[in-house]
Computed example of a mutant assay.
Amino acid sequence: MAALPHPLAADWAAHLARDRRRSAHTVRAYHATADRLLAFLTGHWGGDVDATRLAGIEAADLRAYLAHRRGAGLGNASAARELSAVRGFLAWAGTAAPRLRGPRVAKGIPRPVAPADVIALAEEVADEAREPWIAARDWAVLLLLYGGGLRIGEAIALTGGALPLGETLTVTGKRAKTRIVPLLPQVRTAIEEYVRLCPWPMGRDEALFRGFRGGPLAPAIIRRSVRGARGRLGLNERTTPHALRHSFATHLLGRGADLRALQQLLGHASLSSTQVYTAVDAAHLLDVYRHAHPRA
């Protein structure tokens, strides 16, 4: 039987929604984090946890919690984000969070961004937005880059003519060439939520993604937000909006996608541009082999 939500976590979620005007997605995610922490501490300390007892939390308790979460498969970026949410919850509860260095992603050769890290990055960017509709916009844009393999300029160039959304999206790429890309249900839902919250009218010839004052969204805004988020999460400096497109390609290739099909999805003029992803995937496989094979 699932545990009931903890009252402290519910109160924090209400504060985030009412006073901080966080998006529904952020409120759900942070509420879940606080619930997980309190449930863990209840077992870790052997009794109910209230605000008074929470004030006694120590660095060792947080390390144990993170180890517990990492044991459930949490990656470095997601663990860093979890710790950030925990610190915010403790601060709201009037408790100074113990000093604890967050996990860092080891630097090395360029690699595709792991799916879990893509989500952590998108959530972190959305959480820093000044308005719920901007949070929904940033979330939708980043999911579109990863889920559809779009260039940032291609996503920004979309207009209200793309609405209502279907199972595919017509994208205009370099040299004004158009292509059709599948629209994953999660990506479609994210864009539709943004459209619902956006305060600006969606004319067919007007930009789909808008800036704070209603004009077309500038790519630099997304790049700056990603740069800040990756620093807070400890992600490699090569984690950029364009890296999400590379990750889309590499992950599809790793799951058996045909090079010609991938070429069309990416909008590459020549197959040679697409073949670069075979080298990235081979490097990743060789790295796995070297670390896993007893005779490597």
Rank of each mutant, 00 (worst) to 15 (best):
89 F>A: 12
78 S>D: 00
61 D>Y: 03
123 E>I: 08
83 L>Y: 01
144 L>K: 06
125 V>Y: 02
118 V>N: 06
145 L>Q: 09
138 D>R: 12
91 A>V: 08
118 V>F: 04
116 A>G: 07
101 R>L: 10
67 A>E: 06
85 A>T: 10
103 P>M: 12
128 E>F: 06
136 A>M: 07
143 L>S: 06
131 E>W: 15
114 A>H: 05
62 L>E: 00
108 G>S: 11
129 A>Q: 13
74 L>I: 06
113 V>W: 08
88 G>S: 01
104 R>C: 09
121 L>W: 03
110 P>A: 02
127 D>T: 11
91 A>N: 12
95 T>G: 02
83 L>G: 03
123 E>R: 09
86 V>L: 01
87 R>V: 00
132 P>H: 09
116 A>F: 05
105 V>L: 11
71 G>F: 06
62 L>Y: 00
110 P>T: 03
109 I>G: 13
96 A>T: 14
98 P>M: 00
79 A>P: 03
83 L>K: 00
77 A>Q: 01
127 D>H: 12
117 D>R: 04
67 A>I: 14
117 D>L: 05
72 A>G: 14
73 G>M: 08
106 A>W: 15
104 R>G: 07
77 A>P: 01
115 P>D: 03
120 A>W: 07
81 R>Y: 06
107 K>L: 13
72 A>S: 15
83 L>M: 14
140 A>V: 01
99 R>E: 11
90 L>S: 03
74 L>P: 00
104 R>T: 12
78 S>A: 04
143 L>W: 07
115 P>M: 01
145 L>T: 05
110 P>W: 08
139 W>E: 02
108 G>N: 08
66 L>T: 02
74 L>T: 05
99 R>F: 09
120 A>C: 09
89 F>E: 04
122 A>L: 06
124 E>V: 02
106 A>V: 10
109 I>V: 15
128 E>K: 13
61 D>K: 02
99 R>Y: 11
141 V>A: 09
125 V>F: 00
82 E>F: 08
100 L>S: 00
129 A>Y: 15
65 Y>N: 04
65 Y>V: 10
85 A>F: 01
73 G>S: 09
76 N>T: 11
